[in-house]
């Protein structure tokens, strides 16, 4: 029987993302991550489930190079993001799409401007930028809202804009921190479908979520469970117990 992510490992023998013995202490001296080991291969779709304070956002920030680990190393695409020179950091970030937990949209700018921003940094053809932006907006059902300012949208719509912005430029790596946090079920489904379609185009996707239900919806080949700063469980089947537990049903 083939293990989850095995196909991806066969086609890309060098891991796209590697976390080696990661240790990260919080401000109060508590271990946010302790000895975390993780390998992701190019084109993989991975779901990382963990409760609040389990270290999901810390791991995302480490992968993005916004923080550096106290111990261990992070390697993304052969480079350590926390040790990138200031000149190299922008080109690294252009290749990574991120859905931040607090969305980090530009509220004074329109939906179209927000979604097209990463494309503006990378593409030189206006027609191409327009096409890709509209594709992303249409996939998320935002095409009618393109000219509205993000500050005027509901939280749910803002969440969709954040997902659209992270996926519009088809990044090599996509990190989603609670990408469905403010969405109802139908919109969550839409986002999951969109993420899967982006993954099919070759983007490595890591979705961080606290809701096992979302992880079930994603049904990723590999699902990791983050508890106390360590990856404890691997595999989608093991999640069912967690989901039931969360729903109060037990296993």
């Amino acid at each position: 029987m083939e293990l989850p992510g095995e196909a991806s490992r066969r086609s890309h023998p060098i891991p796209h993302v590697q976390c080696l013995h990661l240790e990260k202490l919080g401000h109060n001296g508590k271990h946010l991550l302790s000895g975390l080991q993780l390998e992701l291969f190019r084109g993989e779709l991975v779901c990382v489930v963990g409760e609040m304070g389990s270290g999901k956002t810390t791991l995302l920030r480490l992968l993005l190079g916004l923080e550096s680990p106290d111990e261990g190393r992070v390697i993304v695409g052969g480079a350590d993001p926390s040790k990138l020179a200031p000149r190299e950091a922008p080109s690294f970030r252009k290749q990574v799409g991120v859905v931040f937990e607090d969305l980090k949209l530009m509220p004074a700018r329109t939906v179209y401007e927000n979604v097209s921003f990463p494309l503006l940094l990378a593409e030189s053809s206006r027609a191409l930028i327009h096409r890709k932006t509209m594709q992303s907006l249409t996939a998320l059902g935002l095409e009618q809202k393109a000219s509205l300012r993000c500050g005027e949208l509901s939280r749910c719509e803002q969440q969709l804009v954040a997902v659209g912005r992270a996926t519009a430029h088809a990044p090599l790596l996509l990190l989603g921190d609670e990408p469905s946090a403010h969405l109802d079920e139908s919109h969550t489904l839409k986002v999951v479908e969109h993420l899967k379609s982006v993954n099919l185009k070759g983007t490595t996707i890591v979705v961080f979520t606290r809701e096992p239900k979302v992880a079930e919806l994603i049904n990723a080949p590999r699902t990791l469970r983050l508890t106390g700063g360590r990856v404890l469980e691997v595999g989608p089947s093991l999640l069912r117990g967690t989901a039931n537990k969360a729903a109060g049903m037990g296993t």
């Binding site: 993005l64 916004l66 200031p86 000149r87 922008p90 080109s91 690294f92 970030r93 252009k94 290749q95 990574v96 991120v98 931040f100 980090k104 949209l105 530009m106 509220p107 004074a108 700018r109 921003f117 990463p118 940094l121 912005r165």
Partner: peptide, 14 residues
């Protein structure tokens, strides 16, 4: 300021 921070996170050069 907010916009500059977001732009930097998305890969804009200084």
């Amino acid at each position: 300021r907010e916009e500059r921070e977001v732009a930097e996170l998305l890969g804009a050069t200084p």
